[in-house]
Simulated assay, not measured.
Amino acid sequence: MCTHTPKCPTADSPAGDTAQVVARHPEQGWSLLCNAVLFFEDTGELLPDGRGIPPRRPLAAV
């Protein structure tokens, strides 16, 4: 799906969430990355194979 140079990281790469955004839907809280990852505003992800990555938000300071 990626046509950028250099190529964006693959969906299963540790840096997969750094791929370029191809569609942004802030009203719904998600963006589609060029490697077919759905990236959610809470930092959760849905990979192209259907696996989910839980949110990685930092915990609030006490």
Rank of each mutant, 00 (worst) to 15 (best):
C2H: 06
C2Y: 03
T3C: 13
T3V: 13
T3K: 11
H4T: 11
H4N: 13
T5E: 13
P6K: 05
P6S: 10
K7L: 15
C8W: 00
C8K: 01
P9L: 01
T10I: 06
T10Q: 10
T10L: 09
A11M: 10
S13C: 15
A15P: 01
A15I: 03
A15S: 11
A15L: 14
G16F: 01
G16D: 00
D17S: 15
T18C: 04
T18P: 02
T18A: 07
T18V: 03
T18L: 09
A19T: 00
A19S: 05
Q20S: 12
Q20M: 12
V21H: 02
V21N: 04
V22D: 00
A23W: 07
R24D: 15
R24P: 01
H25W: 09
H25L: 13
H25P: 03
P26F: 10
P26Q: 12
E27A: 12
E27F: 04
E27W: 03
E27R: 07
Q28Y: 02
Q28P: 00
G29V: 04
G29D: 01
G29Q: 04
W30E: 02
W30V: 01
S31E: 13
S31A: 13
L32E: 15
L32S: 08
C34A: 09
C34N: 05
N35R: 03
N35G: 07
N35Q: 09
V37F: 02
L38S: 04
F40T: 00
E41I: 00
E41D: 14
E41H: 05
T43I: 05
T43H: 06
T43G: 00
G44K: 05
G44F: 02
G44V: 03
E45P: 01
E45D: 09
E45N: 07
E45K: 14
E45R: 15
L46P: 02
L46F: 02
L47T: 07
P48C: 07
P48V: 08
D49G: 04
G50R: 03
G50S: 03
R51W: 01
G52F: 08
I53C: 02
I53D: 00
P54Q: 09
P54A: 14
P55V: 04
P55I: 02
R56P: 00
R56Q: 07
P58S: 11
P58K: 12
P58Y: 09
L59S: 13
L59H: 08
A60D: 06
A60T: 11
A61R: 07
A61D: 09
A61E: 09
V62N: 07
